Simulated scan of single mutants.
Amino acid sequence: MPKAWSDKRERQFEHIKDSEKEQGASSRRAEEIAARTVNKHRAQSGEAHTASGTSVRDMSPQRRGGLRSGTNRPKGPTRDQLYNEAKKCNIEGRSKMTKGQLARALGRV
């Protein structure tokens, strides 16, 4: 974590990183997502010395959620994220289910 981050931002980073790991992201990917999210918050709140225009004007990371810009595929959680949620709910046959089947089994469709 960069030295410029406050204690609040460090806690936020750890929370987001842990959340991403629970959703099935690798450690490296979880850290990347957490760092980008924290830096975007810093830019939007004026804590960063420099910030891109898109970081400042774009919607917040929480509001954006599972949206993926620039793709034509369905939006929302990945198959791995749905699988991990199904595992927590003890849904049988989850390993052979497709993304759509997992979503239906979890009541998301």
Rank of each mutant, 00 (worst) to 15 (best):
P77G: 00
G76A: 01
K75N: 15
S52M: 15
R63C: 02
E47K: 07
G70D: 10
A43V: 04
Q44K: 08
G70Q: 08
G70R: 13
P77T: 07
L67R: 12
P77Q: 10
G76I: 06
T50L: 14
M59A: 13
M59W: 06
S69P: 13
E47I: 01
H49K: 15
G70Y: 07
V56F: 07
P77H: 00
G66N: 13
R73A: 02
R64I: 11
V56K: 15
S45N: 14
Q62W: 01
M59D: 13
K75Y: 09
P61V: 02
P74I: 02
L67G: 01
G70V: 10
Q62D: 06
T78L: 12
P61Y: 04
T71D: 14
Q62N: 08
N72H: 05
G53A: 12
R57K: 15
Q62T: 04
V56M: 11
D58C: 09
R68F: 07
A48N: 10
T54F: 00
K75A: 12
T54D: 12
A51D: 07
N72W: 00
N72I: 07
G65N: 06
R64D: 03
L67T: 00
S55L: 13
R64M: 08
S45M: 09
S60V: 06
S55W: 12
A51T: 11
R63I: 00
D58K: 04
K75C: 10
P77R: 00
T50G: 08
T71P: 02
T78F: 02
S69V: 13
N72M: 07
S52F: 11
R64K: 13
L67Y: 08
T54P: 01
T71Q: 14
G53T: 14
N72A: 01
V56Q: 12
G65R: 08
S55Q: 14
D58E: 15
A43W: 00
G70K: 15
